[in-house]
């Protein structure tokens, strides 16, 4: 594959063409925080603005989201400048004002300095819980799982992920990928007595024939069998006892 060299914080690294800045930085031990990006999810990134870095090229500097900005020949990146920290702190302060209960946001903000929120905290006009509307959940559901059970609804400050019309979705397979991917733990998934509840719908779980642990929703098994042709008996046992 074509390699290009890119300069990050004064050091030069080899990178694959079109690789994003954030990946190259992480591979080389330079930490850039991020929330809405997951390398496994093609359409993720670009929305939370936490990973903004300075991109210098052709005598021009601008802030770019490192999670989706492809490295190019002659690009010089700076991740640790006063501007980068100032804007990141601002973004995190806004997020804290939005989701004061989120531990993840508070921890990330603490790493940037004082965590006072000077803006009026949201007074709960609607239920925002811990969601920062980054759309990683809906991107996972669409790109990785491929069932499109949830999408982003509304716009502006009311934007949030939801099932169509907020009703339990009959295409959801209860896999929970959205909940696992969520950077702030905003999606509630509960399991009790062999039933998983997520997005307002109950899913019966398949129990492992060896250990007796309910480990996968029946709907997910049906979906995997239907889309991959895998033998149904494969799911009799949980991954630990296969």
């Amino acid at each position: 594959m074509e390699k290009i060299s890119v300069k990050i914080d004064g050091r030069t690294f080899e990178a694959a063409k079109d690789q994003c800045i954030l990946e190259v930085a992480h591979e080389n031990g330079i930490y850039i925080p991020s929330l809405c990006y997951n390398s496994e999810v093609a359409s993720s990134g670009g929305s939370c603005r936490v990973c903004l870095v300075e991109a210098h090229q052709g005598g021009r500097m601008r802030l770019v989201t490192s999670c989706n900005y492809p490295v190019r020949k002659g690009l010089e990146v700076k991740t640790d400048t006063p501007l980068v920290h100032r804007i990141r702190r601002g973004v995190l302060e806004l997020l804290m004002a939005r989701v004061p209960d989120s531990e993840a946001i508070r921890e990330m903000a603490a790493a940037e300095g004082p965590t006072d929120v000077r803006f009026r905290l949201d007074e709960g006009e609607y239920d925002r819980y811990k969601c920062i509307a980054c759309a990683l959940c809906t991107n996972v559901c669409a790109d990785v799982v491929g069932v499109f059970a949830i999408g982003m609804v509304n716009r502006g400050a009311d934007k949030k992920p939801d099932t169509p019309y907020g009703k339990p979705s009959d295409v959801c397979i209860g896999c929970g990928a959205c909940a696992y991917a969520c950077p702030t733990g905003a999606i509630t998934m509960k399991e009790k007595d062999g039933v998983r509840r997520i997005w307002g719908r109950d899913f019966d779980m398949v129990t492992c024939s060896v250990c007796g642990t309910p480990y996968i929703p029946q709907a997910q098994v049906d979906w995997i069998v239907r889309t991959t042709g895998k033998d149904r008996s494969f799911f009799d046992k949980c991954p630990d006892h296969r």
């Binding site: 939370c48 601002g90 509307a133």
Partner: peptide
């Protein structure tokens, strides 16, 4: 009119 995609615009 903000679409709500990015934090600075949506929440700022």
């Amino acid at each position: 009119e903000s679409c709500g995609k990015c934090t600075p615009c949506r929440d700022g």
